[in-house]
Structure formats: structure tokens, C-alpha cells
């Protein structure tokens, strides 16, 4: 970072601020920062502390130090935790290898303004606009025992395929539902990034005789590096932090265990205990790694 003393010739900074400017700047930065720290970081740290205690979440004077008990309980006595880890991993892999690449390719094609691209863009983006509650209702319509798909197969309720209950299907059903939103979301981010890539670059490549795939791989994709990182981080975070979709379908029961629901299930409701806080911290630690990687990339140039 350059400072005023080392760069006296830079005219782009005023040498001093008037007092009122300083106050204004203080307000500009102070109010948002205070709000953010008070409502996000402070509570996050508090929860980290609480994860080492026994507490019902009600009477503050009854907080008892528990050491690592909650974590031990999770790691050694709670098989559902490992089930959830498994589901979250599948989720992550699915997003990484299937949903996200599809979103990127889609964005690439739409950006080339193929026939009907306007309609396609809206069609694929539509699910992103819907609330999770609505998404749940819509898919329930298709897949519940007396829903569309079972109706199509001609199965009565008693013999209906158990799309949400049977382990052979449920995770894939949820993956498809999640991708339904995720692909549109990634497409949109990537489209925004593609707008920033010089069109001349791509044209030059095509004229040079490069195939479509080569152009994408050798020219466009590398030029998109910053967006790629964002997309990667969003993919990781969305798959680890997933909550709404599963909560809408299964409520807080363990129909399809994922970390986000385990946190909620253990921290809210009647059975609240700080085991939920410990789950939240585990989830936090899992997400913070990609966050750090992302921030390092993002701010490398600024730090220089």
C-alpha cells in the first residue's frame, strides 16, 4: 500500500482531510462495520465459546463448562454426524463435477448468443428466483407418493416409489433439486464474468482455426480465472452450508442428514443443546478453508 509520504507526487489523494471529512469517512465506515461485527462476528465467536459448554439456550446463568464433551459426543457417539458428512461430500462432488460445469457451459453457450438465448437465460434462471419453500412445494408435486411421477408410473400410494425416503433415490433427488437452482445461479455469475472477457480475444481464436472446445479451454476459461475462483468457492460453500432445501422437504427430522439441518435440529427447538453449537463450529471450520483460499486470491493484488 502506498502512503502519502512515499508518494508525494501522486495527485490522486488529498494531503489532508478536513475535520468534517474525517467525521464523514468515520461514519461511512463505522456504521456498517459496527453492524457487521456486532451481528455477525461477535455472535459467531460467542457460539464458538458456547460449543464448549452445556446449555439449554435459555438461562445465561446456567451455562456450564463442558470442555470438549460436545465434540466428543459428535465424533464418537453420533453416527448420524458421519452420515451427514457423507451426504455433504456427495453433494460437494456432485456440484463440483456436474452442476457447476453444466452451469459454466450453459453460460458460455448463452453468451455466444445462440438462437433463443434470451429465453434460455430466463428459463434456467427462473428456479433461482423461487424461494426454497416454493421449490419444496413444486418438487413435492412431482415426487410425492401420489404425485406426477408416481402417477405416470401408475403406482398407487401404497406402492409408490419412495423418492424422498429410500436411500437409493433420496440423495439423487435432492441433488437434482439442488442443481435445478445451482446451475442457474452459476450460469448467471459466469455470464456476468464472460461479459468482461474481451470478445475480440475469442474471435481471434476462432479465426485461428481453434475449435469451439479449444477456444473455451485455452482462451476463455483462463481469462476467467477470478470468476472461476468465485464459482469454486460458491460451489463449496453452497454444498457444505446447504440447509433450506432439505429442511423444506424433511423438516428437522433426519430423513436425509446434512450438517446444516443437524445444526438447526440441535440448536433450535425443544431439544436445544450446545451440541448444536459444536455442529455449527464444525461447519464453520469446514467452510472457512475455502473462504481463506478465496480471499487470498481475491486480495493478493491489493495486499501487494
Amino acid at each position: 500500500m502506498t502512503t502519502e509520504t512515499t508518494a508525494p507526487s501522486t495527485p490522486r489523494r488529498r494531503r489532508f482531510f478536513s475535520k468534517s471529512d474525517k467525521i464523514t469517512l468515520g461514519f461511512f465506515i463505522g456504521v456498517p462495520t459496527f453492524l457487521h461485527v456486532a451481528l455477525v462476528w461477535f455472535p459467531a465467536l460467542a457460539t464458538m465459546y458456547l460449543s464448549f459448554t452445556y446449555w439449554t439456550g435459555i438461562d445465561i446463568s446456567k451455562i456450564q463448562w463442558a470442555g470438549l464433551a460436545n465434540y466428543e459426543n459428535i465424533f464418537f457417539n453420533t453416527p448420524i454426524f458421519w452420515d451427514a458428512m457423507r451426504v455433504n461430500t456427495v453433494w460437494l462432488l456432485w456440484f463440483f463435477f456436474i452442476a457447476t460445469p453444466l452451469g459454466i457451459l450453459l453460460a458460455y453457450q448463452i453468451d455466444r448468443e445462440i438462437r433463443g438465448h434470451k429465453f434460455y437465460q430466463s428459463a434456467y434462471y427462473l428456479p433461482v428466483v423461487l424461494s426454497l419453500a416454493v421449490t419444496g412445494i413444486i418438487w413435492n408435486f412431482l415426487l410425492r407418493p401420489d404425485g406426477f411421477v408416481n402417477g405416470l408410473l401408475g403406482l398407487p400410494t401404497s406402492q409408490a416409489i419412495s423418492f424422498f425416503g429410500d436411500d437409493r433415490y433420496n440423495i439423487w433427488v435432492i441433488m437434482i433439486m439442488a442443481s435445478w437452482r445451482h446451475i442457474g445461479y452459476i450460469m448467471l455469475l459466469y455470464l456476468a464474468g464472460l461479459k468482461a472477457v474481451d470478445a475480440a480475444l475469442r474471435e481471434a481464436a476462432t479465426i485461428d482455426g481453434a475449435t469451439e472446445w479449444q477456444t473455451f479451454r485455452k482462451v476463455v476459461f483462463p481469462a476467467m480465472r477470478p470468476v472461476n475462483i468465485i464459482v469454486l468457492v460458491i460451489t463449496i460453500i453452497e454444498s457444505l452450508r446447504a440447509f433450506d432445501m432439505v429442511y423444506i422437504i424433511y423438516g428437522s427430522s433426519g430423513g436425509l442428514p446434512i450438517l446444516g439441518v443437524l445444526v438447526f435440529n440441535n440448536i433450535a427447538g425443544e431439544g436445544a443443546s450446545m451440541k448444536g453449537a459444536a455442529y455449527a463450529v464444525i461447519l464453520f471450520l469446514l467452510t472457512i478453508v475455502p473462504i481463506i483460499a478465496y480471499l487470498r486470491q481475491q486480495f493478493r493484488e491489493d495486499v501487494k
Binding site: 410425492r144 407418493p145 401420489d146 400410494t157 401404497s158 406402492q159 409408490a160 416409489i161 419412495s162 423418492f163 424422498f164 425416503g165 429410500d166 430423513g255
Partner: peptide, 15 residues
Amino acid sequence: NTNVLDLEWDGGRDM
């Protein structure tokens, strides 16, 4: 029925 985990109590009532 085999879809126990797909039905909430009202699904049973409807059956």
C-alpha cells in the same frame, strides 16, 4: 408399505 419414510402421518390417514 415400503415408502414409510416418504409419508407423514397424513399420508397414512389418506391411505
